[in-house]
């Protein structure tokens, strides 16, 4: 099953490779991984999207907790949570001007953020599957370039991951 795991870690060189190394050494899946410092600059927050049996997910949580630089781990999938992913898409100006593209932009609430003589770049923020749908709506052969951040996650309501 797909799980989205959130963790706080020391904002230090090497922490990221400890986590990435753990996943590759133990053969766990990483669908996406996103990380950046928090309001407390000594801490970084990471969101990992992974998948596996319940036993594997339990091990992933325990193994992450065991890393000395990991301060706190929360499996967001244990409760209600929100997910968002940012995507930038560059298309030819002609595609951007098409009615179909504009419709897709309206449906998926995209924003135009850059244009040049021949290209146009848009920004979308949503859950991963919605971004997939947008790409499908536009059509793969119409797209020049796509970049996605991977999901960031946060629990709903009072559930908080903080030191």
């Amino acid at each position: 099953m797909r799980h989205i795991i959130s963790l706080l870690m020391e904002n230090e060189a090497g922490t990221l490779s400890r986590i990435a190394g753990l996943f590759s050494a133990r053969g766990y899946n990483i669908e996406s991984l996103s990380v950046a410092p928090t309001e407390d600059p000594t801490l970084s927050r990471m969101t990992i999207v992974t998948s596996g049996s319940d036993a594997v997910i339990e091990q992933i949580n325990k193994q992450l907790n065991k890393l000395i630089d990991v301060v706190a781990v929360m499996d967001l999938s244990d409760g209600e949570h929100l997910e968002r992913e940012l995507m930038l898409v560059k298309v030819p100006a002609a595609v951007a001007a098409s009615e179909a593209f504009k419709r897709a932009m309206a449906v998926f609430q995209g924003r135009f953020i850059d244009t040049s003589n021949s290209t146009c770049t848009v920004e979308l923020t949503d859950i991963g599957v919605k971004l997939d749908e947008f790409l499908q709506a536009v059509g793969r052969d119409q797209i020049l370039e796509t970049v996605r951040t991977g999901a960031s996650g946060i629990a709903r309501g009072e559930r908080i991951l903080k030191l």
Binding site: A55, E58, Q59, K62, Q63, N65, K66
Partner: peptide, 8 residues
């Protein structure tokens, strides 16, 4: 002492 040893 190590939770990750349990149910591994």
């Amino acid at each position: 002492i190590d939770p990750s040893s349990i149910a591994k």
